[in-house]
Write a protein that binds this DNA or RNA. Structure first.
Lengths: 184, 184
DNA sequence: CAACGGAGAGAATGCTCGTTCTCCCCATCC
DNA sequence: GGATGGGGAGAACGAGCATTCTCTCCGTTG
């Protein structure tokens, strides 16, 4: 028997791949089981309902996504470079073969109206992202409004890249961000 | 008996209210029937499957949405004012009580991975929107890249307004748009 | 060794939903 | 008037799915 920790990891990995890749309602618990290799009994012991598994998936993805973004941005030499690096990181993300847009926007569109938990998780994710960008602009001595504007650009690039299937919106957003950054 | 044209209108109105308001998979054909007052038999005569009804809903919404935007923008005196008016129009839209983001982004997030028809309709809508904005910037003697940048801002504002439940992103996007417009 | 408790496989349950079918009514036409 | 055809209401069908239950197996403990 695999350890509970390993089982939980496998379940969350399967949930992330499947929920993100195909949508939450399109994936049944049976498919989570077969992909993770963890029996339904154990699955329900660890996550008492599909809704709780969805929340766990979203929470873990939120933390990881923002950590990866922060690690990339913080590897830059100056605050200005960190800001522009956000859009380089987006470009890399958009190019990943399984990229399908923002997991939070997608789950909000799918379930936001019926699940307040999903709606709230999406809201918290976007708020954290906006706060992160305003933190970067503050470090560069720029106003918080610039952070909001850059966040809107990034948000738009994510949606547009997902729907058009192109990574180009990241470059477009970066060019616009550069103009805003220099004007601020 | 109501005329086929009236029945079709009622069905599409019900579909739009329900699909947009709660998500496509969350709404059953039975609810379309009870809301529209059109019997299931006639419903299936006019739209042979739920998928076709979804496509009809999206197609009509695409046309109407872009018409309303264009009417608002074209009521302005100068090309520059038309461009900025796009964001005023967004602000009005965000303030509507049933606003729940972009119907195309939402349906893409929900069904884009499983339905190529939905994915394609969403893509066509975004492309038309981008083309409309680059047309506005061309009329103002500005490069097409400005149109793309403004479209990203608008797109980000829509998503952010939907998730946070605030109309404020329209104002933020307009402020950023003004900077980009004056710099271009 | 024998009882036990927890684990896996997967069947069973109960519900939802897309789609079709049945049955009945009524307006039209001979 | 009586046949007919199209329409409405809603039951029926079949599939999918979240969740639970059953049965069997095996490792542990006394």
């Amino acid at each position: 028997m695999i350890s509970p920790e390993t089982a939980e990891l496998r379940i969350l990995d399967a949930a992330e791949t499947l929920f993100y890749g195909r949508g939450i309602q399109a994936v049944g618990m049976d498919e989570i089981r077969s992909t993770s290799g963890v029996s339904l009994k154990r699955l329900y012991q660890l996550f008492p309902s599909k809704g709780e598994l969805v929340q766990a998936y979203l929470r873990r993805r939120d933390v990881r996504w923002r950590q990866k973004l922060a690690a990339y941005a913080e590897a830059q030499a100056t605050p200005e470079e960190s800001i522009l690096a956000v859009f380089d990181w987006l470009h890399e993300w958009f190019g990943e073969p399984d990229f399908r847009g923002c997991a939070f926007s997608n789950s909000f569109g799918e379930l936001g109206a019926t699940s307040s938990a999903v709606a709230e998780t999406a809201r918290a994710h976007k708020e954290a992202f906006f706060r992160y960008l305003t933190g970067l602009t503050a470090a560069a001595g720029k106003p918080a409004s610039l952070g909001d504007h850059l966040a809107l650009l990034a948000e738009g690039a994510i949606t547009t890249a997902a729907i058009t299937g192109s990574a180009e919106p990241a470059h477009q957003a970066k060019a616009a961000a550069r103009v805003l950054l220099e004007a601020a």
